[in-house]
Design a protein around this nucleic acid. Structure first.
Length: 589
RNA sequence: GCGGGUAUAGCUUAGUGGUAAAGUUCCUGCCUUCCAAGCAGGCCAUGAGGGUUCGAUUCCCUCUACCCGCUCCA
């Protein structure tokens, strides 16, 4: 996705509006701000809460098969050991001093060759590098191809600023040393590496006042692990039966290398995650005699007992797309990427990303992964606690099997195993557990970013509309086309004139009528047109104006009616006050 | 983390080595009729720290944040 000046300025306008109207502020702004952290102002807080509520309602309350969880941000450090986050994120890393490419300190392959140094480099367009550039000319590399390579590396790193590689002049070349099996140079670029330093994307803290190395804990980099860690407690306390899900919304923290694109990549952010636990396909096979698999056009509307993991994965994808449509993000604003087998993490079976066309590019809004039984298995191993699920239906089905049928089943299961490294012993052990009704559930994980969703909603809602009045004068109307369901303010209430106590009193009555049911905003200042436009910028879908007709002056037939103004069309119509509440409730629920 | 750019009022911009300018927003008042109307009044700013200088918003250095490009992205 290429950036255009238009998309850049559109983003700038959105950022500016977000601040001006109190959606999103820079965190700690009066102290100069802090990178990668953002606050939500009054309207932003309402918007985010509405989004959070729609997710929670759709994913848990509206369903019989999902329950909620609200776990702590700081958990036992072993959780992150089991999940793999400590190992993946805590490596010592070294960086190439030319290109800043990183490499794990213990993964640097020994290389031999000549150590070459330049005092700097410059280009005709006045771009220059004033620091020393040191690289390894690999054994057998021709000096000219080496120089060409160095120029390319410099351009690669500097981007457009450096101009064309062939125009770069390398300054004061000297050969300073010959080395054998050195681990001081980047394996790909040959650039000198800097000192090794720890590189951890998890935010650390200390528990207890002594703050020693033994007290280290982590702020969760994802909310999902708490769900796995509490899986057994939820099972034991909630009378849930596989297939079922556990949903959670909460803050997560990552030390992003480069926070960017406004709130899109932040260091503190909010996730909305569901772990939906399903029977392994082998269990479905034993119970139902077959496993339903996905094919184009399959009916995904109602889950079926014989669904295998793939149908469940497709089902959740369809559910999530429907959710987005319900809050105003139609398919035209979304994209999708189905990860190929090669891109998948080793434990994942499939993963689809739901993308949104942001002004700065098409980026991920949500990922829906089929993760097999990896996470629960890891926690079972590391905690030493049984996390197997006892499935009565499965046990009953297996009790009907003859020993010969069981042997045949094991052979079939092994020939169809997902991971080719699985040994026959492992398959046998797995099947023997199944015959007793025991398994570790597999999981489908729809994981969405709340802040990203809020940004997507702002981006898709934002419009600068040119409107022309009766006199032929045109001007720009800035409007946020929020779906009424998620709009921070549902209705603005305006007395036509504020210096007429009768109008103000009547308007206050309507405020009192509606406030118990929705977010309302009362505004009596300035011209009525200005008040409408103010609410357009805040994304308020409806405006109600109280005038002298409301009081029954002149036209008795209009008594107890008000003007209802619709944000997107700017249409106005007369509506009886008695119909106001039912009408608005119908729009926002 | 590297390179480039930016930082003046809530917002958009102007300007200067010697009292910082405007539009807009916002607030107050006047106005009996529906899309940023009019009139009158009012509030608010040089990102932080250091240096040069009689004097710095302006020149220099450092820091911070944001934007763009690389890089990173379990």
């Amino acid at each position: 996705m290429s950036k255009t000046p238009d998309s850049e300025s559109r983003m700038e306008k959105i950022v500016s509006l977000a601040k001006r109207r109190g959606f999103i502020f820079q965190s700690s702004e009066i102290y100069g701000g802090i990178g990668g952290f953002w606050d939500y102002g009054p309207l932003g807080a309402e918007l985010k809460r509405n989004l959070r509520d729609t997710w929670w309602r759709t994913m848990t309350r509206d369903r019989e098969d999902v329950v909620g969880l609200d776990a702590t941000i700081i958990m036992h450090p072993s959780i992150w050991k089991a999940s793999g986050h400590v190992d993946t994120f805590a490596d010592l890393m070294r960086e190439c001093t030319i290109t800043n490419k990183r490499v794990r300190a213990d993964h640097v392959e020994p290389q031999s060759g000549s150590v070459m140094r330049f005092s700097g480099a410059k280009a005709p367009n006045n771009w220059r590098v004033d620091r020393e550039i040191t690289l390894l000319m690999k054994q057998g590399e021709h000096i000219e191809s080496f120089r060409k390579r160095v120029r390319q590396l410099l351009v690669q790193n500097a981007g457009s600023a450096a101009g064309k590689p062939e125009e770069i002049e390398l300054l004061n070349e000297e050969r300073i040393d010959a080395v054998t099996d050195s681990i001081e140079f980047h394996p790909e670029t040959g650039g000198l590496l800097n000192e090794a330093r720890p590189f951890n994307l998890m935010l650390k803290t200390y528990i207890g006042p002594t703050a020693t190395e033994d007290d280290i804990a982590y702020l969760r980099p994802e909310t999902a692990q708490a769900i796995f860690a509490q899986f057994k407690n939820v099972c034991d306390s909630s009378r849930v039966k596989v297939p079922f899900g556990i949903a959670q919304i909460g803050k997560a923290f990552r030390n992003e290398v480069t926070p960017k694109n406004f709130t899109f990549r932040s260091r503190e952010f909010e996730q909305m995650e569901l772990e939906f636990f399903i029977k392994p396909d082998e269990a479905v096979q034993l119970i139902h005699g077959s496993v339903a698999t996905w094919s184009e056009g399959a009916d995904l509307s109602v889950p079926q007992p014989n669904w295998g993991w793939e149908l469940w994965h497709r089902y959740w994808y369809a559910e999530r797309i429907a959710y987005y449509a319900g809050i105003g993000l139609g398919q035209e604003s979304l994209g999708e990427i189905w990860q190929t087998k090669a891109d998948l993490a080793h434990y994942a079976r499939a993963c689809v990303d739901i993308l949104f066309k942001f002004p700065f590019g098409t980026e991920e809004l949500e990922g829906i992964a089929a993760r097999g039984s990896f996470d629960l298995t890891q926690h079972q191993t590391h905690s030493g606690k049984q996390l197997e699920y006892f499935d009565e239906e499965l046990k009953a089905a297996c009790d009907q099997l003859t020993p010969e049928q069981k042997v045949a089943f094991i052979q079939k299961a092994h020939s169809e195993r997902f991971n080719p490294d699985t040994t026959i012993e492992e398959t046998t052990a797995f099947c023997e557990k199944l015959f007793k009704g025991l398994y570790i559930p597999h999981v489908i994980e729809p994981s969405a970013g709340l802040d990203r969703l809020a940004l997507a909603i702002l981006s898709s809602s934002f419009e600068e509309e040119v409107v022309t009045d009766e006199k032929g004068k045109s001007e720009t109307r800035t409007v946020l086309h929020f779906h009424p369901r998620i709009a921070p303010i549902k209705v603005g209430i305006f007395p036509l004139l504020k210096n007429k106590p009768e109008l103000v009193a009547k308007a206050r009555e309507i405020v009192a009528l509606l406030r118990p049911h929705m977010a309302v905003f009362y505004d009596e200042t300035g011209a009525i047109g200005r008040r409408y436009r103010r609410q357009d910028e805040a994304g308020t879908p409806f405006g109600v104006t109280i005038d002298f007709d409301t009081l029954g002056e002149e036209k008795p037939e209009f008594k107890e009616t008000v003007t209802l103004r619709e944000r997107d069309s700017m249409q106005q119509r007369r509506i009886p006050i008695a119909e106001l509440l039912p009408f608005l409730l119908g729009k926002i629920l």
